[in-house]
Design a binder for these strands. Structure first.
Length: 884
RNA sequence: GGGCGAUUAGCUCAGUUGGUUAGAGCGUCUGACUUACAUUCAGAAGGCCAGGGGUUCAACUCCUCUAUCGCCCACCA
């Protein structure tokens, strides 16, 4: 069996094999079991249209680490998976494929179109789930939810009705962000502002009574002038004071519009006079309401000009801009064009420039919802990691605007509002029925002529219920009771407003409890130049390719090890080599151990064995280091310092366990105690590394003699504080220093490995001599020394070279030195450096404040150091003399 | 306009509450086929910790200002 292990680890087959077994055996499933503490994470549901990208890989690796770690630590750990119907995004995908057939969704009609989308979902919706499985995600797939599922949709309707009944939902005409391509309203968050180079156009509007006089206004969207119903100036502006109240003739349209005064107008900007288009600009809308202006909508939902735009009707908004400018120019009414930077809203789904557009929409009143959500965070009931996001959250919440939740698309939860046509025919404001299910007849007039609201809800109106709707809220049930509130939410910063903040509000509103205790915000994955990874930039590193090439464990480990808490990640493909190499290192170390392990020495309980006898220092040391690593790993994971934990596990295994321990024990590998310790460290280490590298840890775990159950069901390693021994660690450090020093001397002097070397050691104190002496064999082995002796006098002979170590002197024959002059020079540099350091240290130790205020151990350490430096300086001088 | 983050080795980044000699990976250079691993092993070179000022016995770490880059927010016509 041992011979079967290859020299190189092959992740491909192994990973596929284990995931299948885990899944088949339901190892990820969690059941509500009161009495046992729950640990629950709800996945940020990826869009059904989603394809695994590095952001997902990072996000889900972090969650998987937490889930596996907490399960091993004894929690009843549940990772709730699912996908999001992603209204606009999904509809766009299906519309695009329809377009290939030359069809529009309107050609099919609502019902047929929706069933097409469902078809698409059935065919492609599981892609992202399959990909998450490749990553190793330990989700309880039996619970997989979809935001459009029947039960989930009922939760959505319930939430709507409750808010409506509390008068927290209202309908009204407001300026919203309109995407002319998707032809729907968007929330403020869905319009992403991008800084762009544009122009500021100065238009001249003639005064009615004195047509040779003009008021000049500046605008970035000249086509909107067709909908102007006033020009506003600041009442304190001397330039225009006399014109206030006068009438202008709006060019091209010949509408008479008034000059109004309002403090909102900034005198510094443009000409100080601003055209007012109440139906196409938020500020203008407010001015319009305030001053009772007319609202003229000049645009159709598709972004072309409508009949109110007169002869421009039918033109696309940007074509209309050119046409308007052309005509104004011809009429000499275009004074000038200035370059101007401005930030323009874009649809977050299709990147089309959005229009501020006046339309009838549904809104959620947010201030009352925000209040308890602010308090929960302020009172630390919910904590953000890193903490700085708290401020971002609070700032947004304290300035929250009402949420436009209606969308003019078809794919989504249709708003549970019904209209009785009979009632409406008498009074349009009446006849609104809000109900979770379609009413059979109007409760007022009993008419059955009832139609449902056409609009659907914003996708986020369903996502914000995710932490409890996934447990079939509002139905009270054991799972909901047991797993809610969930424990940790792991997500990206760009989603704080869309989702995190709203979930907190929804949780407090509907469940009267916070939805989660901790929010871990990780960084954005960027390419090596710091750009966001995106398909259009072509800078995407595909995680699936990385998995195929390096393995999932490698992807996970590398990703985690470079992700400092909340920092953005700059990624290049080479980074994954580190993870692959590490997996291979674990593989080979295990191979080595298994090759040498006697079956009887596996599965020996370490604690019981230790009671019987004392170990040698090397074995004591590795146990001490292991348990220190365990402690550090726990501290780091509990504080969400994943990279620290990963790097610490890496350097323990590679640089302590492999580089030192395994090398040191090679000569004694047959010994029972050594075998037991080496087996135990490996076995326990596999558990520590399992949350990070689930596949390879399982593969090796299952190859350990006598292990049957999966590693992911194992209990975490128990702390053994008594096995952490600083004194042993210190002593071993002395040994490493000596070996390093000798290796160093050989390398510097270019002494071939094969040549015989004799080393004399001189110790400053007898105690140290005593502790190092038993380690002589190790020094000989690892530093390739033939003869090792202790001498009283450290003074190097004429043919010797010496090196100074703390409290120690290492002397070796000079014969191998190639360039003595070079050595003397180096030596002198060292002496100079030490002397200047001594000066500083002496000054510090002479400082009364330091002695009075610094902790005792710091003072002692400094004193020791000074003594040591003095000795070293003297010795170096002597060596220098010896070299001559 | 407001807020946040970054600035540490050639590159990409760590550095948790101030306290021994500021670390890692990659890259470079030197040496090694040492029977677990060349996806390896042993070593070396390389840092006024962005800059100024301050607090402190002690600053990469805390405060302040400046510069450069990046992100987010805002009703900049």
């Amino acid at each position: 069996m041992i011979e079967e292990l290859s020299k190189q680890y092959n992740p491909g087959e192994t990973e596929e094999k284990w995931y299948k077994i885990w899944e088949q055996n339901n190892l990820f499933a969690a059941k509500a079991s009161p009495g046992k503490e729950a640990y629950c994470i709800v996945i940020p549901p990826p869009n059904v249209t989603g394809i695994l990208h590095m952001g997902h890989a990072l996000n889900n690796t972090i969650q998987d680490i937490l889930i596996r770690y907490k399960r091993m630590r004894g929690f009843n750990s549940l990772w709730m998976p699912g996908t999001d119907h992603a209204g606009i995004a999904t509809q766009n995908v299906v519309e695009r494929s329809l377009a290939k057939e030359g069809l529009k969704r309107q050609d099919l009609g609502r019902e047929k179109f929706i069933s097409k989308v469902w078809d698409w979902k059935e065919r492609n919706g599981a892609t992202i789930i399959t990909q998450l499985k490749k990553l190793g995600a330990a989700c309880d797939w039996s619970r997989t939810r979809f935001t459009m599922d029947q039960a989930y949709s009922e939760s959505v309707a319930e939430a709507f009705v409750r808010l409506f009944n509390k008068k927290l939902i209202y309908q009204g005409f407001y300026i919203i962000n309109w995407c002319p391509r998707c032809q729907t309203a968007l929330s403020d968050e869905e319009a992403t502002h991008v800084e762009m180079k544009g122009s500021l156009y100065y238009l001249k509007y003639p005064l009615k009574d004195t047509p040779h006089e003009f008021i000049c206004v500046a605008t970035t969207r000249p086509e909107t002038m067709l909908g102007d119903t006033a020009v506003a100036v600041n009442p304190n502006d001397k330039r225009y004071r006399e014109h206030i109240g006068k009438t202008l003739i709006l060019p091209l349209v010949n509408r008479q519009i008034k000059i109004i005064a309002d403090n909102l107008v900034d005198m510094q900007f443009g000409t100080g006079a601003v055209k007012v288009t109440p139906a196409h600009d938020l500020n203008d809308y407010r001015l319009g309401r305030k001053h009772g202006l007319e609202f003229i909508n000049i645009m159709s939902p598709d972004g072309t000009m409508n009949s109110s735009a007169g002869k421009f009707s039918g033109l696309d908004r940007f074509k209309a801009r050119e046409a308007v400018l052309g005509e104004l120019k011809a009429a000499a009414l275009l004074e000038k064009i200035q370059e101007h930077k401005l930030s323009v809203g874009h649809c977050y789904r299709c990147h089309t420039i959005v229009e501020p557009y006046l339309s009838k929409q549904w809104f959620v009143k947010m201030k009352p919802l925000a209040k308890p959500a602010i308090a929960a965070v302020k009172k630390n009931k919910i904590k953000f990691y890193p903490q700085r996001w708290t401020k971002v959250y609070l700032n947004w919440m304290e300035n929250i605007q009402d949420w436009c939740i209606s969308r003019q698309i078809w794919w989504g939860h249709r708003i549970p509002v019904y209209y009785c046509r009979n009632c409406q025919s008498q009074n349009p404001a009446k006849g609104i029925i809000v109900s979770k299910t379609r009413p059979e007849k109007c409760p007022k007039c009993s008419s059955t002529d009832i139609i449902q609201e056409e609009d659907v809800l914003d996708t986020w109106f369903s996502s914000w219920l995710w932490p409890f709707a996934t447990f079939y809220w509002p139905k009270e049930n054991a799972d909901l009771k047991y797993f809610y509130p969930t424990s940790t939410l792991v997500t990206a910063p760009e989603i704080i407003f869309f989702w995190v903040a709203r979930m907190i509000m929804a949780g407090l509103e509907f469940k009267k409890k916070i939805p989660f205790k901790d929010v871990y915000i990780h960084g954005t994955v960027r390419d090596i130049e710091g750009k966001k990874m995106s398909k259009s930039l072509g800078n995407v590193i595909d995680p699936l390719e990385v998995i195929a090439e390096y393995g999932s464990d490698a992807l996970r480990f590398s990703l985690i090890s470079i992700t400092a808490q909340g920092q953005d990640v700059y990624l290049s493909k080479e980074r994954f080599e580190q993870g692959r190499n590490f997996a291979n290192k674990i593989w080979n170390a295990s191979r080595f151990i298994l090759m040498n392990l006697e079956a009887e020495n596996s599965n020996v309980d370490l604690c019981a064995y230790l009671k019987k006898g004392r170990l040698d220092i090397v074995n004591r040391w590795i146990l001490s280091r292991f348990y220190s690593t365990l402690r550090k790993t726990e501290e780091d994971l509990d504080a969400y310092r994943f990279n620290e934990a990963a790097n610490n596990l890496y350097s323990f295994f590679w640089h302590e366990f492999c580089d030192w321990y395994l090398e040191l024990i090679k000569p004694q590998i047959g010994q029972k105690t050594t075998q037991i310790v080496m087996y135990n460290v490996l076995e326990k280490y596999l558990k520590l590394v399992h949350p990070f590298m689930p596949f390879i840890s399982e593969e090796i775990w299952k190859r350990l003699p006598g292990t049957k159950d999966s590693i992911l069901q194992q209990a975490w390693v128990r702390t053994q504080a008594d096995l952490i021994n600083r004194e042993d660690e210190k002593q071993m450090q002395e040994l490493f220093d000596i070996i390093n020093c000798i290796r160093n001397m050989r390398a510097e002097m270019e002494v071939s490995v094969n040549s015989h070397v004799e080393i004399r050691l001189t110790f400053a104190d007898k105690y140290m001599e005593k502790t190092v002496q038993p380690l002589f064999e190790h020094i000989k082995n690892l530093a390739k020394v033939d003869k090792l002796s202790i001498s009283e006098s450290y003074l190097p002979q004429a043919n010797e070279f010496a090196c100074v170590l703390k409290n120690m002197h290492i002397v070796m024959p000079l014969s191998g030195i190639v360039n003595v002059a070079e050595q003397i020079k180096k030596n002198q540099a060292k002496i100079d450096k030490i002397k200047s350091e001594i000066k500083n240290k002496e000054a510090m130790l002479a400082n009364r404040n330091f002695l009075a205020r610094a902790p005792k151990d710091v003072v002692d350490a400094e004193k020791n150091k000074l003594t040591y430096m003095h000795e070293q300086a003297i010795k170096l001088e002597e060596i220098k003399n010896g070299l001559r």
